[in-house]
Design a protein around this nucleic acid. Structure first.
Length: 497
RNA sequence: GGCCCCAUAGUCUAGUGGUUAGGACUCCGCUCUUUCAAGGCGGCGGCACGGGUUCGAUUCCCGUUGGGGCUACCA
């Protein structure tokens, strides 16, 4: 059996969409699972909407997710070029063959005429497909119109009777009535091929064995099959993947919020988490474990595991999964990913001394246990990086605005300021000793202290937090909170509650 | 409208002609803890409906309903 070859064939008309990433991932996982090759082909036959910037965005998105390609525009390969706009001659040859054999013909109808006629058909309740007006123009007529420089496109003469059966790896046999299909355009007036023409020719020439694409292409498949038959091309296997939907159960689109893959990076997702999450929409490993790394994903991926029904993009679950990855991630790695984000917020200097770097890793290691998004490090953990952190309304209400708190904070500041080793045990002893002397529970000192030092009511173990903040800063934060508290400036304002 | 696809909790899903229908997210409760946004334990909640086939259907068939996709010189 020949080697498996799959491809991802996006059109560069925008950033890489979550749906596109999903399709790419599945095609890639299948190729990797089978030990086959994965091809990236750019379908830029939409001359109007294709952009160079979008091409770069596709590369970036795929790379971010960890999807690599064996053949593609940038890396080349035995079937180059891999950009359709550079393959125009190839399509023209195939279209020429179809024209010669009579399976295709020139159509001189203008877009306006077409639209007008479609409107009439719709009004009459007839399915609006091409009416075949130019189907049987005689040669003289064609020659005359051509001589007059009348623009024309090329249409494929579809089978008028019978059925076209598509055998889909996910859905089984799907039957289509040929009489319902209109003659479709294979070459635009501009000379560019349409998607249908280019995809069929390229999948064949690039020896794609499995066409894995989104379900929205299923209705196009009989047209492709007919083209293949007319061209004498062997059919590849087809696998149409379930669509990803928004929470309102329509195809994921802009109005659902973030649909660009990279938006999720900006929102604080780790690529391995997003990849894992995407793999779980419309596919199941069959086991109960669903946190799967790259290796496990490729080992276990099969088409049989692909489901037929569309899946909703559940941000809650994606966020949870991301938290699981954060928890398990290596702190050094997270520090690398986080550094640029912290710098962007002005929370971290550009050049880290080795010592400062070790400190950052320690902060990350302490926090990662309870974060869900990378951005949590910035929002929840700002007190590690700046004196200008906010006081959470709950912290104000519950602790900082209490009458007895300022005095205790000052006392604590005095003691913590004493020169000595700044370590977890020492800090804990000082705090507990103070509580004993005041004859209150340790919590009565710990909570206000946390509120004063971090501005929050929750977080990692307080002593572990404190040891990562300079001793002098801790003392000054305690005094600042005491002063503000006495002045009544930490009373929770109604708007903050 | 026509064609096609789909249907297990709010969501992602496993699964079977006979199961207490399994797991995960969310939510709720309990618990541990200096705190929870972490950990542990537990709970609520599901086979869309109607006909068949069958000794027996969530599972097979048909229909209904619901949802989605496609109906372009976009892909």
């Amino acid at each position: 059996m020949s080697q498996v070859r799959t491809r991802f064939a996006p059109s560069p008309t925008g950033d890489l969409h979550v749906g596109g990433a999903h399709t790419a991932l599945f095609a890639w996982l299948f190729a990797r699972h089978e030990g086959g090759r994965f091809v990236l082909r750019i379908e830029d036959t939409d001359e109007v909407r294709s952009t160079e910037r979008s091409l770069a965005a596709i590369y970036d998105g795929l790379k971010w997710l960890g999807i690599d390609w064996d053949e593609g525009p940038d890396v080349g390969g035995p079937f180059a070029p891999y950009i359709q706009s550079e393959r125009l001659g190839i399509y023209q040859d195939h279209i020429g063959r179809l024209l010669d054999s009579g399976r295709a013909y020139r159509c001189f109808c203008t877009p306006e005429e077409l639209e007008e006629r479609r409107e009439i058909m719709r009004a009459r309740g007839i399915p609006p497909r091409y009416d075949g007006r130019c189907r049987d123009l005689d040669e003289d007529e064609v020659a005359r119109l051509t001589r007059e420089d009348r623009p024309s496109c090329v249409r494929f003469r579809v089978q008028e009777t019978g059925t076209t059966v598509v055998n889909d790896l996910v859905r089984g046999e799907v039957w289509f009535d040929n009489s319902l299909m209109g003659d479709f355009v294979i070459q635009k007036t501009s000379g560019y091929p349409t998607y249908h023409m280019a995809v069929v020719v390229d999948d064949h020439l690039m020896q794609i064995t499995h066409v894995i694409r989104a379900e929205e292409h299923l209705p196009n498949t009989p047209a492709h099959v007919q083209l293949m038959e007319a061209l004498g091309i062997e059919r590849p296997q087809f696998a149409h993947l379930p669509l990803i939907m928004g929470t309102d159960h329509t195809k994921l689109s802009k109005r659902h919020g973030a649909v660009n893959l990279m938006d999720y990076r900006d929102q604080g997702f780790l690529p391995e988490a997003m990849r894992n999450f995407l793999a779980l929409i419309g596919w199941s490993p069959g086991a109960e474990e669903e946190i799967l790394d790259l290796r496990e994903l490729t080992d276990r991926f099969t088409i049989e595991g692909v489901s037929k029904s569309p899946g909703v993009f559940d941000l809650e679950k994606a966020t949870w999964l991301n938290g699981e990855y954060l928890k398990r991630a290596d702190a050094e790695y997270l520090a690398d990913v986080l550094s640029p984000m912290l710098r962007e917020e002005g929370l971290l200097e550009d050049d880290l001394s080795p010592e400062r770097r070790r400190w950052l890793v320690a902060v990350v290691d302490l926090m990662k246990e309870r974060t869900r998004l990378l951005t949590d490090f910035v929002t929840w953990g700002s007190y590690f990086f700046t004196e200008d952190f906010p006081y959470d309304p709950r912290a104000r209400k519950k602790w900082l605005s209490r009458e007895e708190v300022p005095d205790r904070l000052d006392m604590l500041a005095d003691r913590l300021e004493e020169p000595g080793t700044w370590d977890v045990d020492g800090i804990e002893r000082i705090i507990r000793d103070l509580a004993d002397e005041l004859d209150v529970s340790a919590a009565k000192v710990i909570h206000p202290c946390r509120a004063a030092v971090t501005g929050q009511t929750v977080g990692p173990s307080l002593f572990d937090v404190m040891v990562l903040i300079p001793q002098t800063d801790v003392a000054s934060r305690l005094r600042r909170a005491a002063k503000l508290g006495r002045a009544g400036e930490l009373a929770p304002s109604p708007s903050e509650e």
